[in-house]
């Protein structure tokens, strides 16, 4: 076991981890329930969190590598989660909701990187977030709705 100190959702935390634990495992052990595991092969995107402001797969980040870094999960972005979540809900796009937190973390990254994203750019950016319920169309409509909402706020 080793001790790993990092910033989680704005607070300094100390976690105990095995050398070969992933960030995902550490986050779950810290009671972060929004991160989910959907595969063991880096394909699903359910475990997406922000590391130093960028969306990464927490299943693949070695836990010790987080030492001194800043990790943000959906728990740390509740205001944005409610706004984006409302866009998803207005389309019925969240469905079972299991992929939603990972999806949303990547949408929030997209909104920062490319707030004017076209449909094609949205799809390309989000390609690593699998969803089996929605068929993706409603998610795209929801993301469009969310980006438009932000754009309106910026211009207002």
């Amino acid at each position: 076991m080793m001790e790993i100190r990092f910033k989680l959702n704005g607070r300094d935390v100390t976690a105990m981890a095995e050398a070969d634990d992933s960030l995902y495992q550490v986050l779950r052990s810290l009671g972060i329930s929004s991160v989910k595991c959907g595969c063991e092969t880096t394909n699903c995107g359910l475990c997406t969190v922000h590391m130093d402001g960028k969306a990464v797969l927490s299943c693949s980040v070695p836990a010790p590598r987080c030492a001194g870094h800043e990790i943000v999960t959906l728990e740390g972005l509740q205001d944005e989660a409610k706004r984006l979540g409302a866009c998803l809900a207005d389309e019925g796009a969240e469905q079972c909701g299991f992929c939603a937190p990972g999806l949303m973390m990547n949408v929030l990254a997209l909104a920062k990187e490319n707030p004017g994203a076209s449909d094609e750019e949205i799809d390309a950016y989000m390609a690593g977030n699998l969803c089996r319920c929605s068929g993706y169309m409603s998610q795209r409509r929801a993301v469009r709705r969310y980006l438009a909402m932000i754009a309106q706020e910026v211009s207002a």
């Binding site: 394909n43 960028k54 797969l57 693949s60 989000m126 690593g128």
Partner: peptide
């Protein structure tokens, strides 16, 4: 590089 899994994967 674009077809490789997804943006998060390619960031890792």
């Amino acid at each position: 590089l674009k077809p490789i899994v997804g943006t998060q994967f390619r960031r890792g």
